[in-house]
């Protein structure tokens, strides 16, 4: 008997399947189960108590959870959009540079070398109201004579977190969009020039449609990776003060480990996963659309 021989694509995809199943899917099923229990870390026997949807019901009635949920969506939306716009500017600036491209590109990726927890500490110290770099600079320059409470006021704290997040992640967008710009064929641009388009017009009608797919790829990758922001927020404000900057991940991790209520935390995590899936599918569809525009096959 020659035996059954699997199709080559099955064989090729197998390693990816195995790794993802072992490291992601199995643990996820475990945590899905525990979200139906009152599981407390410090009382391991509680994992065998099945309580149905009680954790979820509790969440749906919990106003603080939904406020955090809304804030997370808001943070993601603003951060991703601003990062895209800034990344676009940055890429355009670098692409136009005639010399030192290699150095500029490396600098452009500089923030990606920073571990998120480091970014958190860095911006926490910079935004310290009393001895932080930002207030010191503003006061030295005579722009303000107050100690601006960057990490306290709800809007300022949100902005500070946003700045840290944008600083650390705009690079990802910039590098993808730059790649798009460099891959662009020159002819359409020249044709547009001959037709008498202003630079703005040729950007709008020629360049942008071409680089849009790149922007969406960056968007997808970033939305996949967004929980990175957790480390930053955790260190900068840990959701405080008075829950003014609470986002889903700070809430979840506090509930899970500090409060040790893993069951409830996993229920929250599942709502968060649902949110990420939504974002990802949204971008993925945009990407498919954008790809079709430039005539690529999928």
């Amino acid at each position: 008997m020659r035996g059954w021989k699997p199709a080559p694509h099955v064989l090729l995809l197998l390693p990816a399947f195995v790794v993802l199943a072992a490291v992601v899917v199995v643990p996820l099923l475990l945590s899905l189960y525990s979200s139906f229990t009152p599981f407390r870390l410090t009382r391991p026997e509680t994992i065998y108590t099945f309580i149905g949807f009680r954790n979820y019901l509790r969440l749906f009635a919990d106003q603080e959870f939904w406020v955090a949920f809304g804030r997370t969506v808001l943070l993601l939306t603003i951060a991703l959009n601003l990062e895209m716009v800034l990344g676009l500017f940055l890429a355009l600036l670098v692409e136009k540079a005639t010399r030192g491209q290699r150095l500029l590109r490396t600098i452009m990726m500089f923030p990606m070398m920073f571990s998120p927890i480091l970014v958190g500490f860095q911006f926490k110290f910079m935004f310290n109201d009393n001895i932080g770099l930002v207030n010191n600079a503003l006061q030295s320059l005579g722009l303000t004579d107050r100690a601006i409470p960057w990490l306290i006021d709800s809007q300022l704290a949100f902005t500070s977190i946003l700045i840290a997040e944008i600083w650390s992640s705009t690079s990802v967008f910039a590098i993808f969009i730059l790649a798009g710009l460099m891959a662009m064929p020159r002819e359409p641009l020249e044709a547009a020039k001959v037709d008498g388009c202003t630079p703005l017009q040729s950007f709008r009608y020629v360049t942008w449609p071409f680089i849009m797919p790149f922007a969406y790829i960056a968007m997808t990758i970033r939305s996949l990776d967004i929980a990175r922001a957790y480390d930053i927020v955790k260190i900068m404000t840990d959701g405080g003060p008075a829950k003014r900057t609470e986002i889903l991940w700070t809430l979840i991790s506090r509930t899970a480990y500090s409060d040790a209520r893993m069951g409830l935390a996993n229920a929250m995590a599942y709502v968060a996963i649902f949110l990420s899936i939504l974002f990802t599918i949204l971008f993925f569809r945009q990407l498919a659309k954008a790809r079709q525009q430039i005539g690529a096959e999928w």
Binding site: L224, Y230, W249, I252, A256, A269, I273, S276
Partner: peptide
Amino acid sequence: MLTRTVPGIALSLP
């Protein structure tokens, strides 16, 4: 792709 959307915190204990 979606396996990447799982936040580390949901994954860490399991």
